[in-house]
Design a protein around this nucleic acid. Structure first.
Lengths: 206, 206
DNA sequence: TAGATTGTTAATCGATTAACAATC
DNA sequence: TAGATTGTTAATCGATTAACAATC
């Protein structure tokens, strides 16, 4: 089990983690593979298979204990530590992201928020102070940030990506429509509501 | 070819559509399977295979014409028409979504925006007037809306989902952290930056 | 012509699913 | 005990990849 997970397994485990986190918040203590399946649209057998590859975490006839399964998956994904990320753009989208607890729930810490607008600098969004964009390289290095979340207009996204790459950020989340060019050792994840919608519509229409 | 696409193929074609749309906006006329691969992280052979299942759209030694490939994929995905969606929640996230051109670029029309806050009703977000939440059932039926985008706090998300389901909406995009319970004929897509981030971190850390 | 890139084959690997004994 | 649900097998299907002839 010292092997690296496949992309598919890591992606699915992350989704189980999210459902478990939310279920725990709602006060649930146990969950079955079928319930996990309902919330993730991943086949229940697949889920049991994924989990049983790492140990016997469930109880037959009962299901999985949410707390202990959370711990096991976190161990597998090595997401037990704190991770520092930077958010670039304190507009509406950036504010929405900064105010959300979704990152904090998973041990992901928004360590810095940047904006070019002098009127935004110094403000607090979701309890995070906004720093001037010019200080990005300095702060990113100082706080050892390896993830950048881009929430700026499409026209400025590439420039921000270049700046992040120059500051040794290795994972970029792109919330703009822009296509980003980055070196091959940098991973870009583009969030795309329209893409998912087109694909959902196809299945609705046929 | 009258067959229904598999889930995987439909998802990939939607992503090609997004890259093509953006490339076109940037003034490009041609694109190779390798370039599509760089932007989507989908293997170039897989892309050529997906496309060649429907026709010979490319030119050897040259690549694909962006305009004509856009047309072909839209035909395959049947996304040529206009689709009406409803956005619930005119807070920061809702405003960000309403102001984005990402839906409009794909023929998806935000036909109505709802909020419970009387101070928001009547305002315009991204050129869309905000209607009172109470009018949701009426307006959703009247405009024949089958997609609902939930951008409200987690605590209210289930209530909104119930209301959408009662109004015959069949596709729900959930931008809250909440897990939603809906009937099996309704598709829920939950957007989850943290999930993707956890999974990206795993590959960075190993 | 030379270079580039498609379309396609073949081989391998992972995902999906049904089914069911084990067992809580 | 009776009911429920895991862990696991086996069979099938789709995704991935390398390789390369065809051809622009």
């Amino acid at each position: 089990m010292a092997d690296r997970l496949t992309v598919g397994v890591a992606a699915r485990l992350s989704r189980y983690l999210q459902v478990l986190t939310q279920s725990k918040k709602m006060g649930k203590e146990r969950i079955s593979s079928q319930e996990l399946s309902d919330y993730t649209n991943i086949n229940a057998t697949q889920i049991r298979r994924d989990l049983s590859a790492f140990g016997k975490f469930g109880k037959r006839g009962v299901g999985y204990n949410i707390d202990s399964l959370l711990g096991e998956i976190r161990k597998i994904l090595r997401t037990q530590g704190q991770h520092n990320i930077a958010l670039i753009g304190a507009g509406r989208l950036g504010q929405a992201i900064a105010s959300s607890s979704i990152f904090a729930e998973h041990g992901i810490n928004i360590a810095a928020v940047f904006d070019t607008d002098p009127e935004k600098v110094g403000l607090t969004v979701g309890s995070h102070p906004v720093s001037p964009y010019e200080r990005l390289p300095e702060i990113v290095r100082e706080k050892n940030i390896i993830v950048g979340v881009i929430a700026v207009p499409a026209d400025n996204a590439q420039e921000v990506a270049d700046e992040l790459v120059a500051s040794d950020v290795k994972i970029v989340f792109n919330y703009s429509e822009a296509l980003l060019d980055v070196p091959s050792d940098v991973a870009v994840h583009t969030s795309n509501p329209a893409v998912e919608l087109l694909y959902a519509l196809y299945f609705h229409l046929t």
